[in-house]
Nucleic acid binder design. Structure first.
Lengths: 191, 191
DNA sequence: ATTTTCGGAGTGAACATTCACTCCGAAAAA
DNA sequence: TTTTTCGGAGTGAATGTTCACTCCGAAAAT
């Protein structure tokens, strides 16, 4: 097995176990077993469990960022760009429930707090893309004149809540509901 | 010290430690110490740690429910009732950050999953009050015709996100911002 | 004096991490 | 070409620590 394969297997196993059972119920031994790897091997690739967890987060974060940019047209109208990003994010979570569950765990933990503090906003999964988009919306007076953090809450809060409910099986989010939800988020932030 | 005092002290200590450090970093020994009680004593009041955690949740839940009903006028307009409940909830979280942090931890854990499944909706902190309110809004065509779960997400998602950001110090939510936020949630759900 | 309640040292299970070892492909020596 | 040596990735049993929970003598209540 190629060296990079192993690293990848370890990350995959960690993602699955942590997403399903939480950080506390994903012991190294279990991750090793699911990755078909010796427990010690993990420490050849990651200094310790914390580093593993943080690198996995980075990997997912990057993957989402590039995913969101696919098909993003910076010259379209403000509203179209907002809808595009929100829809893409919601779709990503629906298509990758493990990723979503992992990110949620991560955010509600000491790990996530540090990350949040770094980016001084950073709601789930995107970079400064959303930030600058919303700033533009405010200065162009398309969007309510509220602090960025509040706008983030209005735009992301429902998306995350709805994604969680879908993944837990409380709603079946079809294409129609996705569009409606994003539309409602728009209604929340628009002037 | 009266018997019920001890029980109360234990719950208070658990609330503080868990809200600040999370479930995993709130060992029984630490809870006992902060409550000025022997470790064994805790087991005289609670069968085990899980029971303690669940009873604490119930207590907070009930406290919030009764708090929300204070000043609630069932005969006012739909919008007024919605605004009243949302504002009261947001204020409660701002005034009781420990409660909020505890509830957040609880919801993002195996404990919370069980609770959610029970009530088949149960976003944070209220009973069926919100549920029936929103149902009424839908039938009266005041509110968008979307599944209850989605409406919950639209109404609660931003509130919780904003409360978290306030408690973490990313915004200072004053009276004005509270009103604006609730108003924006209303914009999100209204037809 | 008898019953009830406390407390905290003690216990075993679970965990992250380490380390002495194995294995194997590739380089060096023959 | 064949044999020997070498390096370093891979392993999992062993280690030390942390934790939830127990248990029994002491203290308080009755």
């Amino acid at each position: 097995m190629a060296t990079s394969e192993k690293r990848h297997e370890i990350l995959r196993a960690a993602l699955e176990l942590i997403a399903e059972h939480g950080f506390h119920d994903a012991p190294i031994a279990a991750i090793a077993e699911r990755a078909s790897v010796g427990a010690g091997t993990i420490y050849r690739y990651f200094e310790n469990k914390d580093v593993l967890i943080n690198e996995l987060f980075q990997e997912l974060h990057d993957r989402i960022c590039t995913g969101l940019l696919k098909g993003y047209a910076p010259d379209k109208s403000f509203r179209e760009r907002f809808v595009h990003l929100s829809t893409a994010l919601l779709r990503y979570f629906i298509d990758n429930p493990l990723d979503f569950r992992y990110l949620e765990q991560y955010h509600n933990s000491p790990y996530g707090a540090a990350f949040r503090r770094d980016r001084l906003l950073g709601s789930e999964g995107d970079g400064d893309l959303y930030r600058s988009l919303l700033e533009e919306g405010v200065t162009q007076q398309i969007v309510k004149d509220l602090p960025l953090v509040v706008l983030f809450a209005l735009a992301f809060g429902p998306l995350l809540a709805v994604a969680r409910d879908h993944i837990l099986g409380f709603v079946e989010l079809d294409e129609f509901l996705i569009v409606q939800t994003v539309q409602a988020c728009w209604d929340g932030i628009k002037r």
